[in-house]
Design a protein around this nucleic acid. Sequence first.
DNA 1: TTGAAAGCGATACCAG
DNA 2: CTGGTATCGCTTTCAA
Lengths: 335, 335
Amino acid sequence: MVSIRDVANLAGVSIATVSRVMNKREYVSKNTEKKIIRAIEELNYVPNPLARGLVGKKMSSIAMIVPDIMNPFYPELVRAVEDTCHKQGYTVILCNTDDKKYKEKSYLKVLKGRGIDGFIVASSMLDKENIATLEKENTPCVFLERLPCDKPRSLIQVDNFNGSILAVQHLLDVGCNRIAHIYGPQEVPTYQERMNGYEEVVKSLPWYTSSYMIAGDSQMEGGFKAVEKILDRHPDIDGIFAGNDLMAIGALKALQRRSIRVPEDVAICGFDGIAVTIMTEPELTTVAQPIYEMGELAASTLIGKINGDITDEDSLYVLGVELIHRNSTMKMRKT
Amino acid sequence: MVSIRDVANLAGVSIATVSRVMNKREYVSKNTEKKIIRAIEELNYVPNPLARGLVGKKMSSIAMIVPDIMNPFYPELVRAVEDTCHKQGYTVILCNTDDKKYKEKSYLKVLKGRGIDGFIVASSMLDKENIATLEKENTPCVFLERLPCDKPRSLIQVDNFNGSILAVQHLLDVGCNRIAHIYGPQEVPTYQERMNGYEEVVKSLPWYTSSYMIAGDSQMEGGFKAVEKILDRHPDIDGIFAGNDLMAIGALKALQRRSIRVPEDVAICGFDGIAVTIMTEPELTTVAQPIYEMGELAASTLIGKINGDITDEDSLYVLGVELIHRNSTMKMRKT
DNA sequence: TTGAAAGCGATACCAG
DNA sequence: CTGGTATCGCTTTCAA
C-alpha cells in the first residue's frame, strides 16, 4: 500500500502538506499543490480509511438494519440504499435482526468502534435502550416506517391510511359488495393504520360488521389460513383487502385451492408492491409503496445528516402510495 | 470510548499487558490476568477494530459480492453468509455489481484499505484483471458457482448436470412424453451444464430433436416468451424443464394465460429452489440447491481461510441438489 | 505557505 | 512475567 509518506517524498514536501491538499480547505500554493497532485496520481494514492477513521474522521460506511433480507420487501430497499451509498463512496454493512432486541444489541456491539458513520433502521423493534446507545454517541440515524423513540428523528414513512382507503375504494369500484380485511400484527403501527383505512371506508356500509376483519400473521401462511376462516364465517365475500402482499398471495392460493375464481368470484388487493406480485396468476393488484425511492431517500438523508447538511427536523417524510391495478381485481362491475 | 489505556490504569498495569490478555497466547500471571479481566468487564471494554486494523490485524469484516440482491436467489444466500459471519463477529459489506466489470472495479477501489479480510464472490463476471488485484494483496476469496480464473481456488458449486437429469427423469416418471427445455444464457456455465443434463436424458428418446430446446433470458419474461414460441413449434409438449425457477414461473404464467392446465396438460419443473416457488399456484416442482448451506459453507470457508486453517486446495465443493416434488408436476402417469 | 510533532488505539518487539 | 516504546497512516495544532 502506498502511503501518504510516499507521496510526500515523491513530491518533495512534508506529509502535512499532502494531507492538506487531500482534504482541501487549507491554503497550499498552487505550485506545490500541482506537484502533489501529480505525485498522487503517479502513485495512485488512496488515503487509508482505517487511519483516517482512527483520527476521528468519517469512514464513509453505514449500517443498514433490517429484520430479514429474505422478506421480499427488503431486497429492493437494500438495493436502493446500497446503490445510493456506493455512488457517494459509502460502504454498507448489512444486519439482519429478526426483530430481536438481543440481536440488535449484538450488532451494535460488533459495529462499535468500526467507524460506522450512521444507521438506517428498518427494523421496527429497535428499543429505547439500544437507541440510547446511539444517541449517546450521537450517531446519525434514519428510520423507516416507525420511530422507536419519542423524540423527533429522521423518519421515512408511507401513507398507509390513505393507501388502504384507495385499495378498499377500488374494490368497491370494481363491484365488490362484501369486502373482508386480513390484517397484520396489530403491535405494528403500519398494520393498524392499514386496518383503520379499511374501516374508514366500510364502516358506513350496511353489510359491515367487524367480523369481516380477520387476523393474518403478515406471512403467506397467515393469509392462507385467514381465508379459510373467513370463508366459513362469511361465504358471501367477493373482495379481500390484505394488509400486505404476502398475505394477499396466501389468500389467493387459498381461494384457488377451493376453486374459487379470482377475480370473478373474489377480487384481491394487497399492499406493498413487492416484486412477487407479478409472479402470481392472476397478477396481484396492490397498493405499491415507492420502495426504491424510500431506500434512496433514506440513504441520501443519512449522508446529508452525516455531513451536517440535514437536521432531524427537516427529514420527516410521508410518501404517497400508488394503486397498481392488475388482474386480481379485473372484474366487471356487477351492479 | 474506553480505550486500552483506561483498562491498564484501572488494573494498574501497562497497556502491553492488557493487550496480552486480550490476545491470549502470551503468558501473564494468573493474578494480573484476573485483575485485568475485571477491569475490562467493569469498563465494558471492547478493543477498537480500527486501531487493530491499522497495525495489520484482522478487521473481522468481509465483503459479499452479488450481481443483484433483488434477484430472488440471493437474499437467502446473503442471509446465510451474514448469519454465519455475525456469529463469528464478522461484519458483512454488501456489493451489487449487476455483473458489470466496472462496478466490480469500483467496489474493489472503495473497499481497499478498509481492512476487508476476505471476499465472497457470487458474481460470475469478476474478471482476471480484478482478480489479479485481489491476488496481489492475497486477500482470501471464496467463489460461488464459477471460478473467474484458471488457478485452483475455493469454489462452491452444485451438481447442475445431475440435478437436471433428476428433473427430466422426474418429468418422464410422471408421464410426460414430450419435454421441452427452456435454457438460460449459454455464456454462463451453470446453464450450459443444465442443458447438458437435459440432453443427456432426452437425446436417446425417439421424439427428441434439438428444436425442443428454446432460449430464455434467465428471467420470468424469458420463460414466458419461450413458452409462446415453443407452443407454436411443438403444440404437443406435455412437460417443461426450465433452466431456473424464474423462467419456470414465466412458463407457468404463459400456460395459464392460454388456459393450458398445469400439471394436467403440461407439467413444469424449475431449478434453484427459490422461495417464490411456493407462492405460485400450483406450487412449483424444482431442483433445489441448498442455498442456505451454500452461504454458510462459503462464509465458514472464508473465515477458515482468513485464519489460515483452510487452503485453496481443500475447499472445492460440489454440493448435491434435491428434487422437490410439488403440484406443478403432480400428474397421473398416462401410460 | 509549510513543516515538525503530538496524538488516535492497538500490537509486538526488546529489555529487564 | 511485565513494561517501555516504535509503529501503522493520517489529521491537526503550533511554530516558523
